[in-house]
């Protein structure tokens, strides 16, 4: 039997990996992928809580998180394509259009 703490630690490690990619990477696409990694970590946490607490709320939240992630990916990738069309780059430190 796997204890709840194992799922908690796995979720935290994955969240930190995603956060590292979100903060450190230059490529806008990889930044968006890192957001997906963080959302996946949260999904594990909700499902594990639901499983160990015998409470259906976590599973329902996982359902909503997956739907929200799909909407977020669509909008985020559209914005990435628009930025690439306008500025010809997807590297976040080259996007200094509004710096003045």
């Amino acid at each position: 039997m796997v204890p709840f703490e194992a799922y908690l630690i796995l979720s935290s490690v994955l969240f930190l990996i995603g956060l590292f990619g979100f903060l450190m990477r230059r490529n806008l696409i990889v930044v968006l992928v890192s957001i997906e990694i963080m959302l996946n970590a949260i999904i594990i946490l909700f499902a594990a809580l639901s499983y160990f607490k015998k409470d259906i709320t976590g599973y329902v939240m996982v359902f909503f998180i997956i739907a929200m992630a799909a909407a977020e990916a669509a909008i985020g990738l559209t914005l990435a394509i628009l930025i690439y069309k306008k500025l010809k780059t997807v590297y976040t430190d080259e996007i200094n259009h509004y710096k003045g």
Binding site: V2, I43, I44, A47, S50, Y51, I66, A70, L77
Partner: peptide, 26 residues
């Protein structure tokens, strides 16, 4: 992992939505 957490429905949703739609979009 979601299957081991007791939800076969969420496993299917995860495979269809994430692996089938979101990452193909990426």
């Amino acid at each position: 992992l979601l299957l081991t957490l007791g939800s076969e429905f969420l496993m299917a949703v995860q495979l269809i939505v994430y692996a089938g739609a979101v990452l193909v979009l990426f």
